[in-house]
Amino acid sequence: MPPADASTGSGAGPAPHPGGGTEDTVDLRLTDELTALFGGGGQAVVPPRPAPAPMAGDLLDTPGGWGATPTSAGAFRLVPVCIERDLSLVSRWMNDPAVAAFWELAGPESVTAAHLRPQLDGDGRSVPCLGVLDGVPMSYWEIYRADLDPLARHYPARPHDTGIHLLLGGVADRGRGVGTVLLRAVSDLILDHRPRCGRVIAEPDLRNTPSVSAFLSAGFRFFSEVDLPGKRAALMVRDRALRDRL
């Protein structure tokens, strides 16, 4: 079970999935594959594409087909991870000390690959995605079925509860509210595209104060403290019924 972070740009990660930090060590350099996917030149651009048709039995209603959403930070969309294309970038982010402090996935690319492959080869209960802002990949997300996750043993889960893990890869996006903006946008996407989901769940490390603050600012409420493998977490909940009030 991953973490859940935001405002400092580093993380909401695995069990523990991580969050914030202080070291400015990650520079965003696109691989040739990412440049080809998102566009040439100095600015990456996401090409328009038709939304994939939902698959029968899709546990998360196809996050890759949710499309772009406008935010105060720019146009944002979730792009499902392709390990051959994205491994180097995600691994670089995981090796930022600010991220590694919470996600605990620093090391060679094989460490990140071992984290991604079970999700990509699994039954679809967790979908790893790049967060692309104005055409530039700048964050890593995991959208997962909290009610089907080991997390459900630690709180009163409801059917179709959907969880979020997040890290911001670019140092420039940390500490200036981008995490809060994107957390609200992604939780809105979940509630808009998953009509059976009544709540969006997150479990940032209690030590990650900037992450907890970002969730609160994004319309989540503190539910309880929970002891998870490797961390004591703040269980955060964004309720469909309260989405327009918080």
Rank of each mutant, 00 (worst) to 15 (best):
P2N: 02
P3G: 03
A6G: 15
S7I: 00
S7P: 00
T8E: 08
S10K: 09
S10D: 08
P14N: 10
P18Q: 09
D24H: 15
D27K: 14
D27R: 15
D27Y: 13
L28W: 11
D32K: 03
D32A: 06
L37F: 02
L37T: 00
F38L: 09
G39Q: 08
G40K: 12
G41A: 10
Q43P: 06
A44K: 02
A44P: 08
V45I: 12
P48R: 11
P48C: 07
P50V: 14
P54M: 01
D58M: 04
L59Y: 03
T62E: 13
T62F: 03
G64S: 15
G65N: 10
A68S: 14
P70F: 04
G74D: 11
A75R: 14
R77S: 08
V79F: 14
I83L: 03
D86Y: 07
D86H: 09
D86S: 11
D86R: 10
S88V: 07
S88K: 06
S88Y: 05
R92K: 13
W93P: 00
W93L: 07
M94I: 03
M94G: 01
M94F: 15
F102P: 00
F102T: 00
W103L: 02
A106K: 01
A106S: 13
G107N: 05
G107T: 07
P108T: 08
S110D: 06
V111D: 02
H115D: 03
R117G: 03
P118W: 14
P118H: 13
Q119L: 11
D121M: 05
D123C: 07
G124A: 11
S126V: 13
S126I: 08
L130R: 13
L130K: 14
V132Y: 02
L133Y: 00
L133P: 00
L133G: 00
G135T: 08
V136K: 00
P137K: 07
P137E: 06
M138D: 07
W141K: 07
Y144T: 13
A146N: 08
A146D: 11
D147T: 12
D147H: 14
D147C: 12
L148D: 05
D149W: 09
P150S: 12
A152R: 15
H160Q: 12
L166K: 00
L166T: 02
L167W: 06
G169E: 01
V171A: 12
A172S: 15
D173A: 06
D173F: 05
G177S: 06
G179M: 05
T180N: 13
T180P: 01
V181A: 03
L182C: 06
D188K: 14
D188Q: 13
I190A: 04
H193L: 07
R194M: 11
P195E: 11
P195N: 10
R196A: 08
A202N: 01
P204E: 03
D205Y: 05
R207T: 08
T209G: 01
P210T: 05
S211P: 05
L216K: 15
S217C: 08
S217G: 12
S217T: 05
A218C: 07
G219N: 03
F220L: 09
F220P: 02
F220G: 04
L228I: 09
P229G: 03
G230V: 07
A234T: 14
A234L: 10
V237R: 02
V237S: 01
R238H: 08
R238A: 04
R240Q: 06
R240K: 13
R243D: 01
R245C: 02
